[in-house]
Nucleic acid binder design. Sequence first.
DNA 1: TCTGGGGTCCTAGGACCC
DNA 2: TCTGGGGTCCTAGGACCC
Length: 421
Amino acid sequence: MPIFALIDCNSFYCSCERICQPELKRVPVVVLSNNDGCVIARTSEVKQLGIPMGAPFFQVRDQLAAAGVVVRSSNYTLYADISNRVMTVMASMLPAIEVYSIDEAWGDMSGVQEDLTEYGKRIRARLLQWVGMPVGVGISTTKTLAKLANWAAKKWPATGGVVDLTDPARQERLLRIAAVSEVWGVGRRLAARLRPLGIETAWDLAQFDIGTLRKTFGVTLERTARELRGISCIGINEGPPPKQAICSSKMFGRKLRDLGPIQEAMATYVTRAAEKLRQQQSLCGALQVSLQTQYHNPELPRYANGLTCPLATPTDDTRDLLAVALRGLRHIYRPGYAYSKCAVLLIDLSQRGEVTPDLFAPAPRRGAERLMSIVDQINKREGRGTVRLGRVPVEPDWGMRRDMMSRCYTTNWDELITVGA
DNA sequence: TCTGGGGTCCTAGGACCC
DNA sequence: TCTGGGGTCCTAGGACCC
């Protein structure tokens, strides 16, 4: 029988801030999304204040200030580095891990000989000592049960942050008290549609007739129900397959009306998407550009449009991708609107080396592959944007607002942590 | 004034093929 | 008078995840 562990960092972004500024350990902390828009990470004290995930910052600003909460803009450079450290430690203690997101990973514990809870506690202790990151560990025979075990580990501190849910009697006890919306794969909409059927808890879902679930809700929910019964349907995916679509999009730091700065933003996003494309060694056959005004204010005229543009030949050359994206952007741009966001989505991806070139397609630029690879190497070593196309500004005036950002303590020579002895 | 960004999977319907 | 059956591919939309 397989044994899965789900290891998940507590309030990941907040914990990263606390690792680098230990004095924050004694105060509540929140981290904001891009543009300091909404709250996306909260320490437990803040959760107790009743500040919900995703709360718009401007609505809770006063409440946070009154409670003495320290507010930080998100510092993804720092979080990515801490994440790598966490994953490296996990990989050193488990035969296989699947990195599931920036702050959590699945582990294969099938071969672990000693007591599972004890082993979970050792993983937890090592992450705390070596990286400074507090985590919760959920262990069970399916991924869905392990996820629920992890939920229990966080909900009840008395568990010491580790819950072993391999025993069927314990499974039943937990499933009976867990609301169905806590189950991995059951969101708000599904939970609302399940309630009329009398499905309120995870246990109700596990016991419900499988055939009806499949007919009414599809195979995804059927799989979830089977997993809750202890039948493993989802395995560990080491080295996930290359992505089938790559997106880069961001709200502008301020509203943009003219085409010029929107082109700069588009160039910046295309550059970023092309880097991700080359990282997974894919080529792009088509891209979608889109542009929109903000949708929260009904007073202002709204406009949103998108366009799919094929590439003449599959490519990973930033110059070719950008030329096509800018042509598409000119098509959908209309003067007279205050735009808040644009996006590029690379689609029709194929793996380099697996494409049959079109005999009649225009010849690729000479040396393009080598050029792009050198640009990527320089930017990796010297920092993103060291070598870039002319359209991409260094410090755009439309860039992200992040007024409360911590330093890049672990990745920038000028911002290293200083320790007093 | 101020509401994130980046993904996945599944389904249904239409076009088209033999 | 009579007009099949079984596929694939693509797209859009909806649900979910962190």
